[in-house]
Design a binder for these strands. Sequence first.
DNA 1: TTTGTGGTGGCAACCGCTTGCCATCGTTTG
DNA 2: CAAACGATGGCAAGCGGTTGCCACCACAAA
Lengths: 340, 340
Amino acid sequence: MPRAHQFGSGDRPVTINDIAAATGVAASTVSRALNNPGRVNPATRERIEAAARELRYVPNSQARALSSGRTGAIAVLVSDVTNPFYFGVLRGTQMQLKAAGYAQLLIDTEDSGDLEVELLHKMRRSLDGAILAASRLPDRALAALAQDIPLVTINRNVRGVPSAIIDTPAGMGQAAEHLISLGHRDIAYVSGPERSWPNEARWHAVRAVAARHRLTFTRVGPFPSGRRSGSAAADAVLNTGATACIVFNDLLAIGILQRLREREVRVPEDLSVVGCDDIFGADFCHPPLTTLTAPIEQAGRVAVSMLLSRLDPSAPAMRQSVMLPVHLTVRGSTGAVSRQ
Amino acid sequence: MPRAHQFGSGDRPVTINDIAAATGVAASTVSRALNNPGRVNPATRERIEAAARELRYVPNSQARALSSGRTGAIAVLVSDVTNPFYFGVLRGTQMQLKAAGYAQLLIDTEDSGDLEVELLHKMRRSLDGAILAASRLPDRALAALAQDIPLVTINRNVRGVPSAIIDTPAGMGQAAEHLISLGHRDIAYVSGPERSWPNEARWHAVRAVAARHRLTFTRVGPFPSGRRSGSAAADAVLNTGATACIVFNDLLAIGILQRLREREVRVPEDLSVVGCDDIFGADFCHPPLTTLTAPIEQAGRVAVSMLLSRLDPSAPAMRQSVMLPVHLTVRGSTGAVSRQ
DNA sequence: TTTGTGGTGGCAACCGCTTGCCATCGTTTG
DNA sequence: CAAACGATGGCAAGCGGTTGCCACCACAAA
């Protein structure tokens, strides 16, 4: 009778061989009973499962990975762990992955495409797949990588690579029209990081709206996305003479708000500010930020679902790409244009 | 001449056997050359390394883990990924781990001690160690677990388990004295989650200061740490008649600030608020939060260093526990008590 | 010349699990 | 009644490294 296992007891971990010995079957049968239940006699399986429970068997994932090729780990790549946008993503991925029994490897690519591809290549064999939130990779590199390892992107649309896309560009219309309806005619778009795909998409959308209304939106930037870039961005916006601006993301927008306070520019009286994403903090900054609320967490969840269904050959084929709608949340940072 | 390896080419990954074949040595020699350089002749090693480079060899970490027992993965457990406090921790751990060539497994324990211990036990064999930020485990369970797997805690002091501790309790003195110097006599401490170790530590410190000044601080709560708990917390504080409060953490404090606005209680005129940690958002909420600034990222870095040095037998022994000092950052949420 | 000795490299046994293939057996089917 | 078959379980070969042990060799010491 094996003594009950206690944490901290230094005994050798239980393997399938122990179970095999305990039940008098071969290790291969144990393996099948545990992973491929239909393959063994129900009665035998029952005995094996009982023994496994009794011995507190925990499969060794390295060994399993080595022989089966499946590691049970999914990497989530973010370009900067400290960007609150990713909190939501991580929360979403975390939940879904845990529910499916996968481990989540968090990787910070530090905004570098090279690092991104290097790390991914290094870890290729230890991963079942990866979720790329905000990849800095060129389309071709991304497509090539997707051949090698199952990939799902978030906010990045590349042919052949499934993706969960937050449709902020569509929301740009709402944002711009909100400003226009408040009387703004000179609107600036504050650009995010240069190689950012969403940034380009947002700018295109803004330009389209501008054209529709026969207005010209100016573009300032690019600025790295981070609160500290807000100072330069705010100054640049003021310099254009715009009465309102739409900012690449909330982080930058919050930075802009801070700088505007320093310079004693009133928001929204002197300048209206619209952000994107509705991150943590957008609702309690001062003034609270009008922004395009994005279903960030949902994007993480959807991305994981897509990836997992792709890994499971028996699962129904999923769509290549899912668009998630955003909506405009009007708070205190936008207001009617003041007469000059 | 092997064709240059391209991503996306479907060829079988390169193993040490390929290198062995290419250089005419045994696989074991390749293994040694790559991991234990002193063990092979420099000339041979050079050839092997060249071949490895040429073939773009990437070691299979599962295989390595299986035979060596070392997995190259460290788990970082947080109780809630969406708590901005952990952003800083993650940033710190991320940097150090990457620098040391370890992978970071992010685990969300959802504030549950049971889940914490279960996950840790399950993954025990796939980990080289773990960092517990905000463990909800009882001391004994923690100590037992530490026998089984190398552990370092953050903000948790248990005999026998090394830890990086942010000395917020010491800062409580500064916070309280700041309030007292502003004329406050009725001060409330807003308690965080019940089983939270830092919460207890902070409350003890507050009480000690109170005793020193012959004042009585009231305690309200416990409240789960989250912005939404702020409403109940704010109401509870107002109910005590206190003119100032020290709040378990910034997240809760920000929630309180929001509720106070709703109730049109002016901060700091009617109530001063002090938070703990100085998380993302504490500086731009309204009013900006006076808080005990904690070196959160540094805590993550230190925790990793301690863990790694513990894993490396050749490393100099490190201290069991490191205290990180905090300082009071005075912003707009505290002010002189108004005469009644 | 003989005996050490340290430096190198190979052999082979694992690490724990998966899986292709085969043996066995009881049961249908022609 | 023989042949065919499906269900079940065992054997053994890996998966890709690591590592203890031994063999070999050159050179130094006796």
